[in-house]
Design a protein around this nucleic acid. Structure first.
Lengths: 240, 240
DNA sequence: AATTTCACGATTGTTAACAATCTTTGTCAA
DNA sequence: TTGACAAAGATTGTTAACAATCGTGAAATT
């Protein structure tokens, strides 16, 4: 009855009953961060998470340790877990890392787009359009970031995917902190333009569009005036 | 007296007394893997690690969870922790990821080498030479891999460093599995040649040398006949 | 009134006992 | 001898109680 290999069963909204494991908790918090519903510096107390997920303290602590190893939260000794709060310097590092990795990534995708399954990306663009249609704010924000994760996934390379996922998550925190309310999501059609350049096997154009896209995101930030980090309690994690 | 921010106190060989924390355990196992003293598929039983490090089970479990999140070990449900054992497919992914990241990385280092402190790299080359002088096999192997980690460190970018460290660790496992006994370490002077190209601010040459270097490592592997994964008990972790 | 000190409550860290699972070993039958 | 089956041992997973630490607020002193 107990699964030998307990994999994460995310994006499945209707199975809160059968004993959520630590991956479930990690995914929930990850999703909340990606949707900017969990503000930086928010305290995540163990007791509170135990209530919310209906789990013992052990599971919560394992989840928190995993989240801290991914840089999503920060564990302070004897003081608890807080959602990571990147500063100016870290923000620069994140964008520098993305500028280093993503251009060769899309270039490679465009070069070998014949061999590669791009349905992940076309499907994703459809999801983004649908979310915009319905004006689902949080959904739009999350999908807007996850597009970049899926660019990495399209390579089929586990390690590249992991790296991009971490960078994108961090970017979400940064945009929440330093961004104005407008540029929380990427501007409309840039994603689909990049995909088209990849599909038409035009590496130079794909790379150029992506660099412009990243520049556009970064220039929309105001590194000086950071949003005040709210320190509320949360019921955000309860619903899907 | 208790440190507010318990940082890792690695590369300090003489403080086994004052309660090693989980980072200490992680570093020890990381080092053993980098030196190819811990073979893939080796079982790391909790009780054994408790003895070796003189620590309670909780610390060991936290360390194992962290190691598994870095892909250094694999946790099997109800069966224990085993040193990761990459297969052919994963090996390809690792090298593909390195081929994607490292070329732009050294290119960037060479371009902005005026602003950047390269002493990390010059010092490291000195360490490699010293180790070769004294024919310290394990030291040579570890430093040979860590050179690439320090290329990333030289950028001063936390995220790039983390990514490279993970890829390099994985490479060490792969070379241990698929490599012949000769090419465990990188061939002598390629590292210093790359550094020289960086110092002389020659991006093209630096990139070209690095690509050749990675190709050289990869071509020294025999992807078909993998070394038999030993499943012994270990006293490797006791000494530094 | 402002500041320091102390004690209380709340939260996290640790330990040890218990439960569940897997592996091994020994036995029995084919 | 080989195979299946079952009990014993060893290992991991879980829980709950206990210890240590931190933050807060009241009381006392200047």
């Amino acid at each position: 009855m107990a699964p030998l290999n307990p994999r994460l069963n995310s994006q499945d909204e209707t199975d809160t009953q059968p004993e959520p494991d630590e991956n479930f908790i990690v995914e929930r918090i990850y999703k909340a961060v990606m949707e900017q519903r969990l503000a930086p510096n928010t305290k995540l107390s163990e007791a509170r998470l135990c209530e919310i997920f209906g789990v013992g303290r052990m599971r919560v602590r394992r989840a928190l340790l995993l989240l801290s190893s991914q840089g999503i939260i920060e564990l302070q000794s004897n003081r608890g877990a807080y959602v990571a709060c990147p500063d100016k310097s870290e923000a620069n590092d994140v964008f520098a890392a993305r500028m280093l990795i993503e251009p060769p990534l899309v270039r490679q995708l465009a070069q070998s787009s014949g061999d590669i399954d791009l349905s992940i990306l076309t499907d994703h663009i459809a999801l983004e359009d649908a979310a915009r249609e319905k004006s689902e704010r949080t959904e739009i924000i999350r999908l807007s970031g996850e597009y970049h994760t899926k660019l990495a996934q399209a390579t089929g390379n586990k390690f590249i995917s992991r790296m991009m996922r971490e960078l994108v998550t961090r970017t979400s925190l940064i945009v929440g902190l330093f961004g104005s309310s407008e540029n929380a999501s990427c501007p409309d059609d840039e994603h689909s333009n990049i995909l088209e350049a990849i599909q038409s096997q035009n590496p130079e154009r794909a790379e150029q569009l992506l660099v412009a896209h990243l520049d556009h995101i970064q220039s929309g930030l105001d590194m000086e005036a950071r949003q005040q980090p709210q320190d509320d309690l949360i019921t955000i994690l309860g619903s899907p």
